[in-house]
Each structure stands twice: as C-alpha cells, then as structure tokens.
C-alpha cells in the first residue's frame, strides 16, 4: 500500500528533466505556481494542461504511475470541486433539487479549480520524482544564498529540508513494517467503525514516533561524531551547473506566460 505513494520519492532516469539544474527546476516551479493562476478560460487551461503533459512526457515518468500516485489527493480535489459546485451562484441554473441549486458557473469554476489543483500537484510531484533530495536542497541553498547576508540561516534550513525529504521513504517503509507486525498480532486497520479505526492507529503511531525520535537522535550524534559543521567553508561534492537546457526552459516559461496573458482576455 505504502509503495503507491509517490510524493517525496525519487525515480532515477536519464531524461532531459532529470538532467536539468535543480535551480532551474525550482525557479520553474515557483513561476509555475503563479502562472497557473493566469489560466481563466478553456483556451488557457488547455494550453497550460498541454504544457504540463509535455513536461511529464519529457521526464519519462509513466503517466499511469503518476496518476496512480495522485489517488490519495484525489479526495481533496473532489471535495474542492463539490464545494464550488454547491456554493457558487453564478450563471444559469442547471438543476435544482430541494434546497440545492446548481449553477453553470459553479460547475465550471469547480472544474477549473480542481484542474489547477491537479496541475500544481502533478508538477511538484515531478520535481521530487526527477530530482534527488540532495539536489533539491543544494538548489534551494544556492537560490536563497543571498539571504545569508541578512543573517538568515539558509544552510541550516536547507539541511533540515533535505533531512526531512530524505526520511519520507524511510518512514513509509517503517510504517509498512510496523503495520505488518501489528496485523500479525490481530490488529485490523481497514474495517470496523470509524472510532475503532482511529483506535487501531495508536499501535501504529506510537512505535513510529518512538523510532523517528530515536533516528533523529542517532543521526545528530553520527553527524557530530564525524565533525559536521555546516555553512561557512564547507566545500561541495556536487557542483551545480547551469546549462543551455536550463536557459531554454526559462525562455519557454516566459513565452508561456506571455501566451497565457494574451489568451486570458479572449
């Protein structure tokens, strides 16, 4: 079950997207989050959707796998969808039953917002799927480097992030193991009433927390024992290289935003 979750996992490959500079990918995502909000009609959504699928295609990550991994957030998307469908009162009335009136504007808005949501999740999942956690952090540290001048502990923050990213799969594996051990002792996580299910989680959560804290402590000791001292004067094994490919991606992004700007007023 745990193996279906894709958020935070890295999927090694040699695609163009994998080879991009992590800084380019990060800038891209930051920009993308903004650009998605430019979309406001069928044309613009189609354009940005097509663009997203182009990136998925370039990344060589199988679409079926990506969509399978999106299932856990689908519930959230559906929730937003219905929220808009039921509470937006715009446009013509489509149907009416009881107190509930569904407007055309609501449905359209629901679809658009869900799409926006899905595209954002898709693109951010792609970042972690195509970039090793270490590179993500290197990228972040480098991008926010200037903030060191005003005493922001950029290196430490980046390290914290990379450690959490690094331990997502470990925690998932651990969850799977403890779940199996408790199932072997007769625990049932998947049936019974809601309150029983909530209770069933306790034998899972406590060992998980205990081992997470233990792991954190061991990691801290191990780092200290090896003389870790971040930031100042620390050299890097992996050097980030900005290439033509990355510049191209940025240019592409500018073109896309321009196109969206023009199309959104149609």
């Amino acid at each position: 079950m745990m193996e279906k979750i894709i958020f935070g996992r890295y999927l090694p490959s040699d695609s163009v997207v994998h080879q991009m500079d992590p800084r380019a990918k990060l800038l891209f995502i930051f920009a993308f989050v903004g650009i998605v909000f430019l979309a406001n009609n069928v044309m613009t959504y189609a354009l940005i959707g097509a663009f997203t699928f182009l990136i998925v295609f370039l990344s060589k990550v199988k679409l079926r796998f990506l969509i399978g991994g999106l299932k856990p957030v689908l519930l959230l998307v559906l929730f937003t969808f219905f929220l808009h469908v039921f509470f937006t009162k715009e446009g013509d009335i489509l149907t009416q039953f009881g107190l509930l009136t569904i407007y055309k504007g609501g449905v359209i808005k629901g679809i658009f917002i869900s799409l926006r949501f899905l595209l954002l999740i898709l693109v951010t999942s792609l970042l972690t799927l195509t970039t090793p956690p270490i590179s993500v952090t290197d990228g972040i540290e480098s991008l926010f480097g200037p903030l060191k001048k005003i005493k922001v502990p950029v290196h430490e923050l980046a390290l914290m992030m990379s450690i959490s990213l690094r331990f997502i799969p470990t925690l998932l594996d651990e969850t799977d193991k403890i779940m199996k051990a408790q199932r072997a002792r007769g625990a049932d996580f998947s049936s019974g009433s809601i309150s029983n299910r909530v209770k069933a989680i306790i034998p899972l959560l406590i060992p998980l927390f205990v081992s997470a804290f233990k792991r954190a402590e061991e990691l801290a000791v191990a780092m200290e024992a090896r003389g870790y001292k971040g930031g100042e004067g620390r050299t890097k094994y992996r050097i980030l290289r900005w290439s033509m490919r990355d510049t191209m991606a940025m240019v592409f992004l500018v073109v896309l935003s321009a196109a969206l700007f023009i199309l959104r007023s149609y």
Binding site: I178, K180, A181, R185, G186, P203, I206, P207, S211
Partner: peptide
C-alpha cells in the same frame, strides 16, 4: 504467530502487560 526481525519496534502500550495482551485480546 510471527515474531518479526527486530520485533521490539512493535511495542506501544503503557505497560508490558498491556502490550502482551494486545494480541490475545484482538
């Protein structure tokens, strides 16, 4: 009954007694 590799990771109750009773009571 399975005793897993490193089964000590499965302990969770307040007391040893409660933890041992977890299986039988389930």
């Amino acid at each position: 009954g399975i005793v897993f590799q490193f089964p000590e990771h499965q302990l969770f109750e307040e007391t040893v007694e409660k933890d041992i009773c977890f299986g039988p009571m389930n």
